[in-house]
Write a protein that binds this DNA or RNA. Structure first.
Lengths: 128, 128
DNA sequence: TTTTTGTATTATGAGTTATAATACAAGCAA
DNA sequence: TTGCTTGTATTATAACTCATAATACAAAAA
């Protein structure tokens, strides 16, 4: 799994790493039970500090996407272990973000069908 | 238009204001040609500094959503004045965000239809 | 003239982000 | 045992962002 990180952008590096890994899991680049790169490996690969990677892993862990073990490293959790964990709060967050994206799309001139097509094809890109 | 601002959250206040106003325009709470509250008005209403509101307005202005005039205040622009302004870059940004939302939705157990329904109903909430 | 508009300036405080350089506990392999 | 690797913790530091306070300004309307 190759992570695209923008060093000069506004989004913190550890958040970008988190986002890229979530996408990677969604797309099936890494599956449940598989290991993520070690913090030192990824840090060296990206040319950043190990603690920055660790912070990303802690975030993923707090959200239930991975487990970490001092010995085994960081392991991806199964979807079934995740469902319902934050059901209510997550749904609110999702709806709020979709509301914002919808508003922007509308104002930029996209019509409903174009917007929905984009949503559908984004979801289609996820693991089968 | 009432703005819901979370003072303790991670998202900067001026970004929250920007987001709420974009939603407000999309939903038709404020229409093209109408005035936004003055910076002093909104600042006092929210109990924050005028410069924080000004920063939000500058952001909206730089994105083409509003125009500001020392005299007339901040005025909402029409959709037609906005279309195609950043077409390419905007589309990439939107697709990237939808990719992330799709991945999270998938991992939280939503199926494709549920996700698309949420997208559709979010867009439906926008101005007719 | 007075008021109101968005904006600019300057200084300040608090918090976040990322780094460097170490160090630790835990488990595995030799 | 000894050595290695794992994620994590610590401490100090630098740079940057966010938000504030207190003013001030140019421009146009009342």
């Amino acid at each position: 799994m190759v992570l695209k990180i923008d060093m000069s952008g506004a989004i913190p590096i550890y958040v970008q790493i988190r986002n890229e890994i979530v996408k990677g899991i969604g797309k099936g680049d890494v599956s449940a039970g598989e290991n993520l790169p070690t913090v030192r490996q990824l840090a060296s690969e990206l040319g950043i500090n190990t603690m920055t990677v660790s912070k990303a892993y802690q975030l993923l862990k707090s959200e239930g996407f991975i487990e970490t073990d001092r010995r085994k490293g960081a392991v991806v959790k199964g979807t079934h272990e995740l469902k319902g964990s934050l059901e209510g709060l997550y749904r609110e967050k999702l709806e709020g973000e979709l509301e914002l994206l919808s508003a922007e799309a509308k104002l930029r001139g996209l019509d409903k069908q174009e917007f929905i097509d984009l949503c559908a094809s984004a979801f289609a890109g996820m693991e089968v």
